[in-house]
């Protein structure tokens, strides 16, 4: 078995999602090659060579791969596919854009956003927005897979793989990269933030949310709220985390003065680490929290801010 991993990178370095995909690939087993496609992407290739467990880095450095256009990049991957039993990529917008195109070009099915490797042909993935987990098996000769980054750990980076160039350019002329604008805002986007700190009814009013803002700015976190806080008029609805609001799954979720109604839990239960600060020891939020602090938030939050 040999595996090709299409890397997610910014030309100079790798994105973490690549490292987690390598971990998933190593669970399948076999040789792992990394494909770096891009325009002026030598830096990323060097970074990839350092990932433990990688045999070979293949670099397709050409202007036609700028912006990882799906048509050209898929054609590139297809041209290399005969050597591999598995083709993988992180389930980023790039991976999700390119790999299904690769699969259909090879006349095989694809697995999206897997969260577990059972065996070389069997994987786990969520369906119905995470409300169910399916174990699925492929009969295809080549397995095409995108991997959910948060479900796997980061691969070590003490390897030294060889780097080789793929020179043939696949410019299909179907699409042209016309620009990119990086989302910029003062506030970190709730759904993509690594850390989210949310306030509930216990915040008592909208002014008190500034306490959370201060903590958030120190942590680089986004500020969210429970529906109770939104309904009470403390904050606008676009800050709502929950069944009827935004679904978040950050590395760290800090719930402040939130009782933990199931509607709220539905929006944050997939967070990696959950912290709850609430003065009511019976609040349901403690049932899902990794760490609970039973304390008055008006004492605890300023303390937290100071300690950071």
């Amino acid at each position: 078995m040999s595996i090709l991993v299409l890397a997610e990178h910014d030309n100079t370095g790798l994105k973490e999602a690549t490292l987690t995909t390598i971990t998933a690939a190593s669970q399948i087993g076999g040789d792992i090659d990394v494909l770096i496609a891009g325009d002026q992407c030598a830096g990323a290739a060097e970074a990839a060579a350092k990932i433990s467990g990688v045999s070979r880095v293949r670099v397709a450095d050409n202007a036609c791969y700028k912006g990882l256009l799906a048509e050209n990049t898929a054609a590139l991957v297809v041209s290399l596919s005969s050597e591999y039993s598995h083709i993988m990529a992180p389930a980023t917008t790039n991976g999700k854009n390119i790999l299904p195109r690769v699969a259909a070009s090879l006349d095989v099915s694809a697995f999206s956003d897997i969260i577990g490797v059972v065996s070389a042909d069997t994987f786990k993935r969520t369906i119905y927005a995470g409300n169910a987990i399916a174990t699925v098996q492929s009969e295809d000769t080549i397995k095409v897979i995108t991997v959910r980054g948060t479900a796997f750990s980061l691969a070590e980076q003490n390897g030294s793989a060889s780097i080789g160039a793929v020179t043939e350019a696949h410019d299909l002329g179907l699409s042209t990269f016309a620009g990119e604008s990086v989302a910029k805002s003062d506030r970190v986007e709730l759904t993509s933030a690594g850390i989210v700190i949310s306030g509930g009814r216990g915040m008592q009013n909208s002014e008190n949310f500034s306490m959370l803002e201060k903590v958030a700015s120190k942590l680089g976190a986004a500020v969210g709220a429970s529906r109770a806080a939104v309904d009470a008029g403390f904050v606008p609805n676009d800050m709502q985390v929950g069944q009827t609001g935004k679904i978040v799954a950050p590395d760290l979720y800090i719930a402040v003065g939130i009782s933990g109604a199931i509607q709220h839990l539905a929006g944050m239960k997939d967070s990696k680490v959950i912290v709850a600060i609430n003065k009511d020891p019976d609040a349901p939020i403690f049932q899902v929290a990794d760490y609970g602090l039973v304390d008055d938030l008006f004492d605890a939050v300023p303390q937290l801010e100071q300690a950071l």
Partner: peptide, 17 residues
């Protein structure tokens, strides 16, 4: 069960705004 986890099971929903 408590009220809110019960209401959740009714799948009730109203456009918020």
């Amino acid at each position: 069960f408590d009220k809110l986890s019960s209401v959740f099971l009714s799948s009730t929903n109203h456009e918020e705004d």
